[in-house]
Simulated assay, not measured.
Amino acid sequence: MIAQAEFSVVDLARQALLAAQETAKRNGAASRKPKRRTGPTVRRDGREPLGFGAATGIWREASRSMAKKTR
């Protein structure tokens, strides 16, 4: 009697992943992930996004000027 190997779902998933990776390499897929953009982002309407610190600073100054106007 031949012993039949029992594979868990995880083992089968690993085999499927390795097979897919090898197929992708043979088909010329890129091996590296694309680099993230680190440069400034300009919106179509000309505005540039603000960082959180800059936005809170603007908000703080605006709230101070509003407080001065109401006194």
Rank of each mutant, 00 (worst) to 15 (best):
D11F: 01
A19L: 06
K25R: 11
S8F: 04
Q21T: 04
R14H: 01
S31P: 00
A54E: 09
T56Q: 08
G39T: 03
G51V: 03
K69S: 14
L17K: 02
N27W: 06
A54S: 10
A5W: 10
F7V: 05
R26W: 07
R71L: 11
A54L: 07
E61V: 11
I2N: 11
S8W: 02
Q21R: 13
L18I: 06
Q4I: 07
A5T: 12
A54W: 02
P34N: 08
Q15V: 05
A24V: 06
R43D: 07
K35I: 02
K68D: 14
E61R: 14
G46V: 03
R14P: 00
R43Y: 14
T70D: 12
L17M: 03
M1G: 08
S63H: 13
G57E: 03
R43Q: 15
V10W: 02
S31T: 10
I2C: 09
D45A: 02
L17D: 02
M66W: 12
M1Y: 05
R32D: 06
K33M: 05
T56S: 08
A55P: 01
T38G: 15
G46Q: 09
D45V: 01
Q15I: 04
R36I: 01
A3V: 12
V10E: 04
R44K: 15
R37N: 13
F52I: 07
K25W: 05
A20M: 06
N27C: 12
E61T: 13
T56C: 05
V42P: 01
A20R: 05
L12W: 01
A54C: 04
E6R: 04
M66C: 12
V10L: 09
R60I: 08
P34W: 02
K35M: 12
A3M: 07
V10S: 05
A19E: 04
T70Q: 10
R14V: 00
T70M: 11
R44Q: 12
G51W: 06
E61K: 14
T38C: 11
G51A: 06
A5F: 10
L12T: 00
E6Y: 04
R64Y: 03
E22A: 03
R14C: 01
R26M: 11
Q15E: 07
G46M: 07
G51P: 00
R47E: 09
S65E: 15
E61N: 14
A67Q: 11
L18M: 10
D11V: 07
L12H: 02
G53K: 04
E48R: 15
N27A: 14
E61G: 12
V10F: 03
G53E: 05
A54N: 05
E22D: 03
F52G: 01
E48N: 13
I58V: 08
A29R: 09
A13C: 04
P34E: 08
P40A: 15
A3I: 12
E48G: 12
R60T: 14
R64G: 07
A13W: 00
Q4D: 08
A62R: 13
V42L: 15
V42W: 15
G53L: 08
R71G: 12
Q15S: 03
S65L: 14
T41P: 00
T41M: 09
R64T: 09
P34D: 10
